[in-house]
Structures are given as structure tokens and as C-alpha cells.
Amino acid sequence: MVCEICGQRDSVTKLTEVINNQVTVRNLCEQCAAEKGVENEEGPVNFPLSEFLAQMGEAPEPHTSSEATCGFCGLAFAAFRETGRLGCPHCYATFETHLRGLLRRIHGGTQHVGKVYLPLDPTAPERAKRLEGLRRRLRRAVDSEDFERAAEIRDLIRSLEPT
């Protein structure tokens, strides 16, 4: 069937329009459909992470040997590339160099700027980092006039500050 607009090219898609309460369906070619603003109905393609990782290997990234293995859980780098899942918290240190490149591609950066976790037995620098994070959140809560939250964060800050 030929396109109902240009009458030349083969039609590849249907356009449904409502004009004066009448539903009309027209067969259009790719070019005329694009001009009418018809989108590809399949929508964005969600490709699996594993393929993404496999493609990454082709880029000139800092090399992580596929034989590299996490000392804690025993996950081999090759297995990570296959499944896209890390094995344990220690994997992040083991595959750090490679992960930086990957995280940059997925998230646009590698530095976490959200909540700072205070470990159960914190060191002085960890405590300082946590305070810095809480102060950032406090400023934000005050800016957005969430005073209930601000009061809660202030209490968290007080509990950490040396008296």
C-alpha cells in the first residue's frame, strides 16, 4: 500500500487521528509519518547491563584482567561482566579502577554526594564527613522551609559534635 500523503513511497505505519469526532486511520510512509510527528511505538530500548559491560571492554579503559578475582567472595571479573552484579562490598575495592569508568558512564560521575553513613564505630574522619553531610542537609531543609526535618537534623548534628 502506498502512503496516503505523498502517494509515492510504501506505507510502513498507521496514523490515527480524530478530526470532528471522526476517527480516521491513514497509512503513511516513514518520511511523512516523521513529518506528522509519529514516534516509533517501541519506545526507548532497555538494553541489558551485561551487553553494556561487554561493549565497554572495547573502549580503551584501564585494563582489569578477566582473571582478577575478589579476595572476599571469589567473584571473577569475567563473571561480573557476564551478570552485571557484584558479589560483595569488597568487590568495589577489587575492581575499583574498572568500576570508575563504568559508573561514570551509568551515572555521569563517581562521587557520592548524598547521605553520609556513620559507621557503628566511627573514626574521627568518618565523623567529620558525616557532620559535613548533615550540615549540607540542614541548609537544604531550611532553604525548603522544612523546619520539622531541620530540627531533626540539628539533633543529629548535636549528638555528634564534641560538647
Binding site: 552484579r85 551515572h107 547521605k115 559507621p119
Partner: peptide, 26 residues
């Protein structure tokens, strides 16, 4: 988080099985 020890990294944030969730985990 005050009762159980979370896995947290100074650079990468809260650590997750899949790298697409790391950081805030949100």
C-alpha cells in the same frame, strides 16, 4: 543504620549488588 552495619564507601556511597543502584540507593 545505627543498629546494623551498612556497607558504605567514601567515594561510591552505599554499595549495592548492581552498579546501577550504587551511591544513594534511591
Amino acid at each position: 543504620g545505627q543498629q546494623v552495619p551498612y556497607a558504605f564507601h567514601h567515594e561510591f556511597g552505599f554499595l549495592t549488588s548492581c552498579p546501577t543502584n550504587v551511591g544513594t540507593g534511591v
